[in-house]
Design a protein around this nucleic acid. Structure first.
Lengths: 244, 244
DNA sequence: CATGATGTTGACCAATCGGTCAATAGCCAG
DNA sequence: CTGGCTATTGACCGATTGGTCAACATCATG
């Protein structure tokens, strides 16, 4: 807790302004549209996406935010109510975009289970490549105390249930080969590639986010998908588990 | 940049103190020992490990640090010079412990390549389970501007080269099946399990860090190792690549 | 006891923090 | 032109930030 009235309550000083906390901007951000958000609020939002993604919540000041957006600092509070609510708005936007991308990838998927899984992976990778600060944002939110976990859960839930549906019948429902583990494994393999990109680049003297390396990574992940699916299908037969 | 002289330079005001920045503590932290660090400096270090790991660098104040350690705030600067240098000390300690654990796992490994790989994975998991804030610390450091990338590279390098040695002859040296990709994949699968634990727990109503789930996860990862190795070995034969 | 190094303390600093507020600019409807 | 509404501004607030400093405690050695 730092600065300010530390609670937004307790004021009611002199003027009759009752300080309704639900206000938070010009009529709920322009009809709550999913538009590209031109104008002042949009500029602030874009600056927030970048700075929160690069420096984290605590590492970003409202001053920097306003400066990058090219607007007055007070406008941030006018349009979004508080720094925390601005952060929530940024997360919400990303989550919506992510969920939309996942749904689209599932809807467009064609072919058998194996092909559909490959297409879902491609959709996931596409989204990550288009929104590179997103995994960092999520990770930083996870690290924070009393983060908006329900937001994350809602969003992760969409992807997780998609994976569970796709894997239905291909793997056991419980134990080490449950869909949850495969979901966590692939999310991990994809996400860390982006969050650890600076260190991996330093280590290999090749930019992991460059075109060539991204394509290579994609091929690697598809190869892993096939390897796991083959073993999964093989084990449904007479094969025994290797490491009990 | 926030507070203070904002540069530690340019002072030289009045007093003759030339402000040698190399000072930073009581003769370089008690002979630079790897000891358990009892005493004031140790208490500060332990508090720093916890708070930096939980709230991140920017999210932790020197005040909180000193309070948790039960010492005066000024002592933090006396023993470690600055907040940044304290953070570096914490990272350095973890890196040393990590490198030691990796070396030990490699030295103790017995059997053929497959068995050695399994044992290295176990060693990696053991370390992560014992130091749960470590992956968060690394991630937060990665996200920060002008982080100590060389520190991370040195540490990641040790593990990466171990993986490369173990995989030598088992996989191509370049392309989507290069050791680097397998290294990144397994690091990702392990690390995200810990960094995303709160969200995954919320999602599944089971604690990913609980004993049962940790054991399950370990079994899953060993299964993945076998699946990938089998396919890798199979492809060295007459098999063709599935997805060109 | 005197001395000097090593630890420790609380008061203090400028800068910055998130947030508020009265004044105002712009604009459209009446 | 006049209200009334929204958007914008700059000055301002108390709290907290990382960091400094002179005074002081502690203690082994001369």
């Amino acid at each position: 807790m730092r600065g300010g009235k530390a609670g937004a309550e307790g004021g009611a000083r002199g003027t009759g302004r009752r300080r309704t906390p639900e206000r938070a901007g010009p009529r709920a951000a322009r009809a709550a549209g999913t538009a590209g958000e031109a104008g002042t609020a949009g500029a602030i939002l874009r600056a927030a996406e970048r700075l929160f993604g690069e420096h984290g919540y605590e590492g970003t000041s409202v001053q920097q935010l306003a400066q990058l957006a090219g607007v007055n600092k007070a406008l941030v509070f006018y349009h979004f109510g508080s720094k925390q609510q601005l952060f929530d708005a940024v997360l919400e936007r990303y989550y919506r975009a992510h969920a939309r991308a996942i749904r689209q990838a599932i809807r467009r998927a064609r072919g058998g289970p194996r092909e559909r899984i490959h297409q879902l992976l491609d959709g996931y990778l596409d989204f990550m490549e288009r929104h590179r600060v997103y995994p960092r944002l999520v990770q930083q939110e996870l690290a924070r105390r009393s983060g908006r976990l329900e937001l994350i859960r809602r969003n992760l839930g969409e992807l997780a249930s998609a994976v569970r549906t796709l894997l239905a019948g291909l793997c056991p429902e419980q134990g080490p080969l449950a869909p949850e583990h495969f979901f966590a494994s692939f999310a991990g393999m994809v996400v860390t590639w982006f969050t650890h990109a600076p260190a991996l680049g330093e280590l290999w003297a090749r930019d992991p986010l460059g075109t060539a390396m991204r394509r290579e990574r994609r091929a690697h992940l598809h190869w892993v998908v096939d390897a796991l699916l083959d073993r999964l299908l093989g084990e449904r037969g007479p094969h025994a588990q290797r490491r009990p």
